[in-house]
Design a protein around this nucleic acid. Structure first.
Lengths: 195, 195
DNA sequence: TGAAATCTGGGACGTTTGTCCTACAGATTC
DNA sequence: GAATCTGTAGGACAAACGTCCCAGATTTCA
């Protein structure tokens, strides 16, 4: 098999398992079994668990950045782009109700484990934060206000994800998404609303 | 030592360690070391890890109920009581910034582990949910609207806790708390506001 | 073609995990 | 005072963990 291919498969499976089972509760053997390689081969690509975690976080950073860039290309107005962010809760509803938000739950777990990779996981949050802040700035808000709005929206979506996985309540998620969209509509400071 | 005393100490330490390190990352040996008892003695009181988890969840249910009951006695109006709930984020700020919300992070972890105790952890959320809903009902909202408001506020505080532990941003927590209090002020449906 | 580099499989290591057993100390009861 | 019950200590167990080594298979390239 090609050089990077096995490695990429490992990272992809690890990414999924870390999300579904948690980092600590996922073992080398679990990942190797799903990729269908031996533990020895695994060790050739990743020598420690921290290395896999770093690779997974890097992968998530790249995927997140790509998703945000994609929205920036597809969606004409900043309001529509922010709406795309809010709609993640609908698009990924099934997974979120089962396992929570991938970013939030990983960050929480790493915070308790006290691993240095915690900073990387927070970095994924930062991508969303700064991207959202930029969109709010495009809506006409000053830098400080835009960041506050970004953090506010990020917090709300995190809260919805947490309660969604606790109560498995689809109607609650939909109501909150609608509420966030309505809130967004009210955040255009100038009379020219979302174009 | 008296019968229940050692047992109570075990549950108390386990409660703290499950919060600070996570359930999975806390071992029998960790708890026994902090209580300063032998693993053998530990086994006399709790035969499996699930038993400790159940005891910890029961303890949290009781403590939470006691806290809510206390607010019901101390605080005259439902608005003040809800404010007490929001203020948890300020009172427990240091711990929340370090380890997140005890309820939210435990629920997330158990959801990934697929343990049957997950229902118990969600029960702690339910205590807050129904207590908050009752307060909103006392403010004059119908049962359905009161529950929606309760879930909304619960979600917001969860989101703030998650981002607080990710970014360690004290100012953000304070701004969100202020915002939630302002939001609460606007939720009195009749002209007679919080008394 | 043959040597070198890359990739893979299978097993081994020391440690830690949850779980369990047994022996003993102190109190309680008859 | 003997017998019983309750609480404690310390060690033993198999399994799983992260980590590591090494002998081949495969590919690369001179």
């Amino acid at each position: 098999m090609a050089a990077g291919e096995t490695r990429a498969q490992i990272v992809e499976v690890a990414d999924r398992l870390f999300y579904e089972r948690g980092y600590e509760h996922t073992s080398f053997a679990d990942i190797a079994a799903e990729v269908q390689i031996s533990r020895g081969n695994f060790y050739y690509h990743f020598r420690t668990k921290d290395e896999i975690l770093d690779a997974v976080i890097r992968r998530r950073l790249e995927n997140t950045q790509a998703m945000l860039d994609g929205w920036e290309d597809e969606r004409a107005g900043p309001g529509d782009r922010i709406t795309s962010f809010i709609q993640i809760l609908i698009v990924n509803q099934a997974k979120i109700m089962a396992f929570g938000c991938p970013v939030g739950t990983l960050t929480s777990e790493l915070a308790k484990l006290g691993l240095p990779s915690q900073a990387g996981a927070t970095g994924i949050f930062s991508l969303f934060r700064h991207w959202l802040a930029r969109q709010f700035a495009l809506l006409g808000h000053g830098a400080e206000a835009a960041d506050r709005l970004a953090m506010h929206l990020l917090a709300r979506s995190q809260g919805v994800a947490t309660l969604a996985s606790a109560f498995h309540d689809k109607a609650f998620v939909e109501a909150e998404v609608q509420d966030m969209c309505a809130w967004l509509d009210a955040q255009a400071p100038d009379p020219i609303r979302l174009q």
